[in-house]
Design a binder for these strands. Structure first.
Lengths: 341, 341
DNA sequence: TTCCATTGCTGAACCGGTTCAGTAAATCCA
DNA sequence: TGGATTTACTGAACCGGTTCAGCAATGGAA
């Protein structure tokens, strides 16, 4: 039905092999012949069949992304859509496609990777939400599946990582609060099993230490809204309650802010609040949320580009370091009102 | 490297063809032989190569989803992640994969579909965000790409649609407000080019008419937060300003509520507010948002199932009607306080 | 007993590319 | 000028399944 390489070969008066060489920029064809073949291909509107290519070259011409997240988090996270859009923008330039899998339970995650490999669906995968002691690294080594990771797990990994310093965003937030006179600055942490959960916490600790302040107001949570509420409540109940809370993401910050407001605290009067992610709704809260913004589109674009380079053998394996996230100061942070003891 | 059909054939002492017939449940093999072949395949751990299958049968064993949305909307919309998860849950049972494309500009959308077809990436696609006069319908007919649509466009379409009555959700919201004594109930509409934007508006109009109330407080918007703010401002400036606003989605409602609060209105005292979608953050606003919740997971599951049925030729082409969305009453709606003239 | 139909299987073609061994012609070098 | 090397191309094998024509064996009907 569609035009095949044989049609082109016939039209150009050469063999299939010659067409293949010519169109793939391989040597072994003279310039005149190449020109003639290219012309014939254009004339006939030949699009090489990806299926045939994939079959004969054992490639999928696709990358995979397995997202293992609670749906409640996925639906409010501005990171993923933009990240995926970034991946796409790179892939579409290279005739690659993105195969997306959502794994809702932990077992499903491993099964997803195995299926992607067994089915020969993808040539490589992008790992997000890196965990400390991340089992996926061993899994992918076993499956011999090329990968790129977002951030580095503490598990030694042979895969190229895209890194940034979450540090800088959190540091900027803490410094901003210190500049406003706050001394009791708490942190509501994201799940500490995740690299970004932990690194944000460590950044908060270091920033306080650097200013000679104690980092003792920590409440563990899990990036969810309800977790944010619980953690906020615990912090606000303390006799030495904080005058500012640095949250590990916008969803927890939103929930925390709402909790504080409904319990008689004013924001930022009694309590300053910062988030992380720059979710679209965050600037439409009352007060709008001071938050930290990274560039997920760029992350996605780069992650895909690095992985493709790696598949082509043109990447040196060096980690890529991305610019640090930016602090967006909005209404939820203000000068400390009075100093309680 | 991997075990192929020839290995199985050799092990079972039959021809490749026999193996193919046996494992695909086709006639032409005796039960004993079939049993022996199945045994041999299991023994060797044979997984038929999807690539080879796809190549020889001209199938992709994958469905496509092209998302053409502003990133700002995608990142806050709880619908898509859950919808995709639903698709996945069906596909994973059928050895199908999901190829996801994000199209950021209108031209990119058409290009995406064309690429999916030309590359033979997918066997069918799921259309979301149906528009009135939707150009994709003609495009997919031209491309001969099977599809399932979410909601029906007014453009006649040969594709099976999954339908529901947005009507019921909005009607419930309006009735709830009327029950609270409201008579000036406004609507901040989503982009009217979309089927769901328009149907929500019509539902609002009908519900008011049914109660003998005028449907004159309409402000057009586009589902975005900033659009929601502008529309809200316009409504609240009117001399006959509403005592309740029904928004077409949660993001606009959130932005609208924040706008109202910062301009001296109390919610729900001066103004009751309802959203649509049940975004995770919506219940953590202050006050928490009364909203309308559908079941995107189920939608996804069904959409994929119907499309697969269709590809297998076992679907009758009838539209699928889904249960109506539910109203979730929370703090942003309350009794009307006083009646202005 | 003969003829026909059915069952169960084989062998080969086929899908549309890539890749490699082989060959004829052109070019180079001594 | 002759031999070696290089260039430009062909033909065929190959990837791993599906599918179909054909054939032998079996069973049933006449």
């Amino acid at each position: 039905m569609a035009v095949t390489i044989s049609d082109v070969a016939r039209a150009a008066g050469v063999s299939k092999g010659a067409v293949s060489y010519a169109l793939n920029g391989r040597p072994g064809v003279s310039d005149v012949t190449r020109q003639r073949i290219v012309e014939a291909a254009k004339q006939l509107g030949w699009k090489p069949s990806l299926r045939a290519k994939g079959f004969s070259s054992s490639k999928a011409y696709a990358l995979g992304l397995v997202v293992a997240r609670d749906l409640k988090l996925l639906g409010t996270d501005p990171f993923f859509p933009a990240f995926i859009a970034g991946i796409e923008s790179t892939l579409s330039e290279h005739e690659y496609a993105l195969v997306l899998t959502i794994a809702t339970d932990p077992d499903a995650e491993e099964r997803s990777y195995r299926k992607l490999v067994e089915g020969g669906r993808v040539d490589g995968v992008i790992l997000t939400d890196m965990r400390n002691d991340d089992s996926r690294i061993a899994l992918l080594r076993e499956l011999k599946l090329p990968a790129v990771t977002l951030e580095r797990s503490d598990t030694p990994s042979p895969f190229t990582a895209l890194r940034t310093d979450d540090t800088d965003g959190i540091t900027a937030a803490v410094d901003h609060l210190i500049g406003l006179g706050h001394t009791r600055i708490a942190h509501v942490g994201g799940a500490q099993a995740y690299v970004h959960g932990r690194s944000r916490r460590l950044a908060w600790e270091r920033a306080l230490s650097a200013a000679g302040l104690p980092a003792d107001l920590f409440a563990d949570a899990d990036f969810t809204a309800s977790g944010g509420v619980t953690a906020t409540e615990a912090l606000l109940r303390r006799p030495d309650r904080p005058t500012a809370i640095v949250y590990a993401n916008d969803l927890m910050a939103t929930a925390g802010q709402s909790f504080a407001l409904t319990h008689g605290f004013t924001v930022p009067g009694d309590l300053s609040i910062t988030g992380f992610d720059n979710a679209e709704f965050a600037q439409y809260l009352n007060p709008p949320l001071t938050t930290i913004s990274s560039d997920p589109l760029r992350w996605g674009r780069l992650a895909a580009a690095v992985l493709l380079d790696q598949l082509a053998g043109t990447h040196d394996g060096q980690d890529i370091v991305l610019p640090p996230p930016r602090l967006l100061v909005r209404g939820s942070t203000g000068p400390v009102r009075f100093s309680t003891t």
